[in-house]
Amino acid sequence: MEFFLSLSYKEWIKMRLFVAIVLALSLALLVYIYTDLAHQERMEGASLLVYKFITGYHVLNTFIKLPLIASLTLALSQFLPEMFNKRLKLTLHLPAHEYDIIGSMLMFGVLIYAAIMLLTYVALSITLSSFLPTEYVYIELMAFLLWAVAGLTVYGFTSAVCIEPTLHNKINIALIGISATVLSFWAEYVRATYLFPMTVVLAASGLLMSVYATSRFKRGIM
């Protein structure tokens, strides 16, 4: 535990500025959603807003960008500095197994990402509940939840691309990552209900790819 906390502190120093940026972006999007819904309700009336949702309107289309940008920013802020001058080598020389080290680093990144998404989720649910019937709040929130999990795919594969020692394998992993990301964001809203298991598997394999890349890095494959 102490080991995890110390490593986390090191990660936090690298990431804190970017965490603030992502939080600011999330806040900006929330303000946008709120003003947009309030504007529609004022201009068209509350009934028409509900009517639009019954006939298939959705409000979260701008929010799909948040998990994408957040995960990309966090992964880059965490692993890009490690790759300059091969700093990750130092970390891997700590008296612990490479899986524990990279596992802790990834876990910290995932926790930070999850915390940001959780905050956004709560704020979003409060915002939407003041405008929409619970049924539609649920649909929109489930869509956001799926995108939040899909963001982990981006996080895992971006980290793996950073860590992977050889250039041509960086490109290969990027190809897999882009394909997996396309699949993670394949469908939206109700249509994507049953895509959750696949998205979780893809997110997990992204993180696994980072572990795999670290093991290759540790053994000095170039």
């Binding site: 394909s179 396309v182 699949l183 893809l202 572990v211 795999y212």
Partner: peptide, 21 residues
């Protein structure tokens, strides 16, 4: 361990490719 990870990753990539291609 590392071999198992690789087998899992090859499997997932195969499935991803069988959708994407």
């Amino acid at each position: 361990m590392i071999k198992t990870i690789r087998i899992i990753l090859v499997g997932v990539t195969t499935i991803v490719a069988s959708i994407i291609l």
